[in-house]
Design a protein around this nucleic acid. Structure first.
Lengths: 197, 197
DNA sequence: TAGCTTTTTGAGTGATCGTTCAAAAAAAGT
DNA sequence: ACTTTTTTTGAACGATCACTCAAAAAGCTA
């Protein structure tokens, strides 16, 4: 019944995500997308509605991939801190994708017509924070981190470290330099996790 | 000799800087600038060449203002750490301007035609790092920080903290939350400044 | 006042923006 | 073969983009 679809939807959104991640919302034109997705405008609009909706779906996929990557690193590691280190290293040293966080970039891209995108980015960062809190609570239960540690506060602190590291790494610094910064950040996180504040 | 200029150049660049800082490069159109500066396109082009050059002059002014603010806080404070705290608080809690760093936003705005802007932003962040190094060396001389401290490494670490805090603060978090994050960051900086790595 | 110089003006340029839609193409049912 | 249903196509739309330039405006000197 009817012509069969030429494009796999998830593959398409993944391509769009990579284009948007690199170029930003206003920096990526529909014509860039047409070329990158190898789709004509009519197909894009039939499948996704408009540019903003395609961006939203790209953000959803980004959040999903980030969440999955984090969970998988945590699960395969022997401790929360080891998993966190592996996760952040993957973020900083996967050269096919930009270093900086797509959600942080969205927050930076603040032109007034896309207030909804800003809001969505804020909410998604909040969601990841909740994931961190839940994993930190498990780590507290297994006595990896101090029982008096404020896990919500620690989760926010970890977010600041990740966002800062990723933004800084965006300017093509040497692997040695970035690794040194990562070590310092992890040490500070361990300190806060172990302290009795 | 000729008609007198209607616009003060520095005032104009300051207005442009604020528009660009909020909206980004691709997010701020020439028509936004025409309205914000109260200038017709011909005047803007006669004075600044083109949009990219006006952006460069805006970045120069931004760097200059940041540098001056930092130096003034350091000078009026009794110690490096106290000055740094005042400086960062000003960055985070001046509500007339965006929280996030204009240079970090420029790095995020990576569309290929503006590679020169990216380069300039990287270089300027490097310049501020040099300023930090020089002030840290003074602090080392006055024995505020440990004599074995690697000041270059510490300067980079401080940059990561500032960029991370400013990005995070961009998403309208409460003053209490941001202040708590700032305290944690300052504590970690103090720790690294005092340690013997 | 006339002539010279400098600055500002704003309508207008071609290019590109996001978006639309009638027509073509490709499958399945009759 | 023919109809029906679904998807893809791409020329074209009005709006907006960065930008130009001839003309007007506003100062100076003679």
């Amino acid at each position: 019944m009817g012509r069969q679809q030429r494009y796999d939807r998830t593959e398409t959104v993944e391509k769009a995500m990579n284009l948007f991640w690199r170029g930003g919302y206003s920096g990526t034109s529909m014509r860039d997308l047409e070329e990158g997705l190898d789709m004509r405008p009519g197909s894009i609009y039939a499948n996704f509605g408009n540019k903003e909706q395609l961006y939203k779906e790209s953000m959803d996929l980004y959040a999903d991939k980030s969440f999955t990557a984090f969970q998988s690193h945590i699960e395969k590691a022997d401790s929360f801190m080891e998993g966190l280190e592996l996760f952040i290293k993957q973020l900083l040293f996967t050269y096919e994708t930009p270093c900086s966080c797509m959600l942080a970039k969205t927050l930076a891209d603040i032109n007034p017509d896309s207030a909804a995108l800003r809001e969505k980015a804020s909410q998604m960062i909040g969601d990841f924070e909740d994931t961190l809190v839940s994993e930190l609570e498990k780590a507290k239960a297994s006595e990896e981190i101090n029982r008096n540690c404020d896990v919500r506060s620690l989760a926010r602190y970890i977010q600041v470290q990740i966002i800062g590291l990723r933004s800084y790494a965006e300017m093509q610094k040497s692997v040695i330099t970035v690794n040194e910064l990562l070590d310092d950040a992890l040490q500070a996180i361990r300190k806060k996790a172990g302290s009795k504040n």
